[in-house]
Amino acid sequence: MKCVTTIHELRSDLKPSRGKIIGFVPTMGYLHEGHLSLVERAKKMCDVVVMSIFVNPLQFGPTEDLEKYPRDLARDTALAEANGVDFLFTPSVEEMYPTASKTLVTVKDITDSLCGASRPGHFDGVATVVSKLFNIVQPDYAFFGMKDAQQVAVIQQMVSDLNMPVTIVPCEIVREADGLALSSRNVYLNEEQRRQALVLFRSLNTVKQAFDNGERRTAALKEAAVSAISKSPEARIDYVEIREYPSLAEIETIDGEALVALAVYFENTRLIDNIKLSVRGGNAHVSHHDESQNSPGHGDRSELELCGQYNN
């Protein structure tokens, strides 16, 4: 594995790989099995795998956890190498933003709700850094976890609107054995908060059960989720929403593809989770996020088997 810290060096090192299939896994580090599952999928689909580790200041608000965001580059480097990453790109903030940026990438409408409403400017920071990374790496495929389904929708929209020659591969949420979605921020939880955080998965299962039993009204399904979460005394709800996916438009009943998304605080730690539901031909389905979006120039690869934040 080659470790690279500068844009110039990475571009130079990747020149011999042009013409091969390049896969890209962008992360903010503090790697866990969710990140490594993206690498595993990338290795199956691509000849060369590039991972980036960069805690992007543009996507953090002034009261958020930029300074205390967990970091352990030595550990991450060892994990990346052990799991077959070919190039590990770990730029500094000064390398990525040598001057105050006068250009931001903004995706409209689908960033107005959910995490976009709770974290103003967050998705401008995500879209901007991902756009920069795509320009630097020039991958054929980029792999993102569906734990942040809104982020995936934003990036897919950006790629489509700007005709970026990269295929976005959404990958399934990876969970602990007890159901908690893996996240670098789980390290913030104390033992009791970790136990109570299971209410996120339980609430989604409550919604799924009601949906399987025929409930299609989003208000009733949201009420079931809120009721389940409220049983956890330390849980503070940021939002519980059910939206059409990927447009994230408000809906009153589920009659197609829908995203059940939630964000919950445990003291200062904010966790997100989601599940996708769909009604097809009058039948209910639970999606495992195995769809991908093919951008111009990669339609000939759409038959490949695909998996289901800026990854964290």
Rank of each mutant, 00 (worst) to 15 (best):
Q138M: 12
D72L: 01
K2D: 13
C46T: 11
G116M: 10
G19R: 13
E291V: 10
V126D: 07
L79T: 02
R175I: 06
G281T: 09
L10C: 11
A210P: 00
Y97E: 01
F211G: 08
G84C: 04
I110V: 15
V48N: 07
Q156E: 13
V49M: 07
K132G: 05
S287W: 14
R18K: 15
Y239Q: 11
V137L: 06
V105C: 06
A261Q: 06
N186G: 08
H35I: 08
G145A: 06
Y141N: 09
I237W: 03
V199Q: 02
D13F: 11
P165E: 01
H35C: 07
D300G: 10
N205P: 00
V199T: 11
E94P: 00
T90K: 05
M45Q: 12
I7R: 14
A263N: 03
E33H: 10
S302A: 15
D72R: 02
K44E: 12
E241H: 11
K276T: 13
S295I: 03
D13M: 15
A261W: 00
V159A: 14
L198R: 15
V152Q: 03
K208A: 14
A261E: 04
T90A: 02
L180Y: 08
D178P: 00
V154Y: 03
Q150E: 13
N283R: 15
I229D: 05
E176P: 02
Y97D: 01
K222I: 15
V279W: 03
V154K: 04
S247R: 09
L73Y: 10
